[in-house]
Nucleic acid binder design. Sequence first.
RNA 1: CGGGGCGUAGCGCAGCCUGGUAGCGCACCAGUAUGGGGUACUGGUGGUCGGAGGUUCAAAUCCUCUCGCCCCGACCA
Length: 568
Amino acid sequence: MRTSQFPLNTVKETPADAEIISHQLMIRAGLVRKLASGLYNWLPLGVRVLQKVQAIVREEMNSAGALEVLMPVVQPAELWEESGRWEQYGPELARLTDRHGREFCLGPTHEEIITELARNEIKSYKQLPISYYQIQTKFRDEIRPRFGIMRSREFLMKDAYSFHMDDESLQQTYDRMFQAYNNIFSRLGLDFRPVLADTGSIGGNASHEFHVLAESGEDAIAFSSESQYAANVEKADALPPTQPRAEATLSLQKVSTVGQRSIEQISVFLKVDPKQCLKTLLVKGDDDNVVALLLRGDHALNEIKAEKLAGVASPLTLASDDDIQRIAGCQAGYIGPIGLDIPMIVDHSAAKMADFVCGANENDSHLTGVNWARDLADVDTTADIRQVVEGDPSPDGQGTLTIARGIEVGHIFQLGTKYSEAMKASVLNENGKNQTMTMGCYGIGITRVIAAAIEQNNDAKGIIWPAALAPFQVALLPMNMHKSERLKDVCETLYKELIEAGFEVLFDDRKVRPGFMFSDMELIGIPHRIVLGDRGLDNGMVEYRGRQDADNTDIALKDIIQHLKDTI
RNA sequence: CGGGGCGUAGCGCAGCCUGGUAGCGCACCAGUAUGGGGUACUGGUGGUCGGAGGUUCAAAUCCUCUCGCCCCGACCA
């Protein structure tokens, strides 16, 4: 490709509304342009990268035995009503009505559609197991689209769905997909980790997320220092402390804490460690009542764990100010367990506290020197309702946890029969009886992968594409070609030879200054660069430089193609 | 949804407080010089100042409404 026929659309200035580096670079390099909040146009250069990702994903899906299909973006409401998600999904599901008054939605995912397809097309156990996949646009009306392509409303996703007679077959396909995902992200050249995950709103049993490790990641991941254990912090279990509760040494006292509400304020004001403070959260129970959740002050509530507990409303909802006043007799910030006559759920760690500080259920007052068993009823049962923190023991018993940030680029689930049962997707088994199929689903955020790759691979000059993602492999840069017929001839010949040798070449035939070319090629991240000038040609030499090399290497013109073959 | 901020040329911004013929840099077009790290100079194209209504002799500027965009929060207890 020649730059005279392939405009680069690079921009020197950083766009004002781009927060993270991948967003800035994608706009500056001319990969995408914003159309509206969470909606982007992909320019020719960006499309080349998209196609690279898609090609790898297709190859690995095909070799994992999945069959490509294509399902509509616009989906009839009836199917979503069948699965129950028309009600469940909420405002993130963009709904529309056609001219006949029939209701539709823009697909945020395609479980309903594939299940409909499968129940019509698959009749016999002999056709199972089977996996379908597609690469299709999804639309999710996010509360707040942000970080450019990373969390946009419309995005490109590879989604695959598998159908089985039993869990064993599902597990086999799941394992195969797990391997395919590892292959895909390895081939893409990303630093990634598969981690145990919560199944979230899609539902189901086993689940892994694939995370690209990056500081700007929206998810926190917990890793074991000793073993292979890795999990989303939402999912990571916090083990109960093994050491016994300390003896009570202080007497119960009520202290005035005017205006001191948060744990942070209290710990500063009373000069105690947040670990010595007890946090009391009031949340809605599952039948219009209120439940207290008790945590150590330095621990954060894990909503996902909490809402799964019996007696707690799901989704987790904090009690209103009125409820707090009615039940605790004070404002939020001064609540404590003593005298509260509602069900209490105590975190494992909170149950081991002694001589602690908590709210007095009276405005502007806290209690100090509080002890279980002595000042209030001892805890009978405890639960895991907190977020794990750095240094916690690993749930598998080996080593301690480290927390890192990741960008979720893939997610695989064992769905079980959630959709197939609701939508009556069954086949005849060996005995001629109807049997509900069991399902798996497997997603990769194609567009997000690109943002994640940039997030992980960039420098002050621009993008540093992993080899598999680069829109072009080689940049061919002539110095002042308009002044030398010889240079022009050599470049034209080399350009043709490189293409014949199978390289994807971007030949910068614009009449621009050298510095301008260099900056553009570095910004758009072309991995290999060949510079030709009259000076070098006098000696039959050209210059080679890898995107991350500090210096040029002089290579004989006649050897350059071989050199590239050896390098790439 | 709550809080904050911003809409002026393709991009980045000034002008608004104190109303009086709409500016700067980059980009783009033409020319001259230059020619190995976003070169310099000259000339030029391009804006109903987000939209609607109002106040006024006069509105980018003041007032009201509205639309859009960005950031933070949605875990004080």
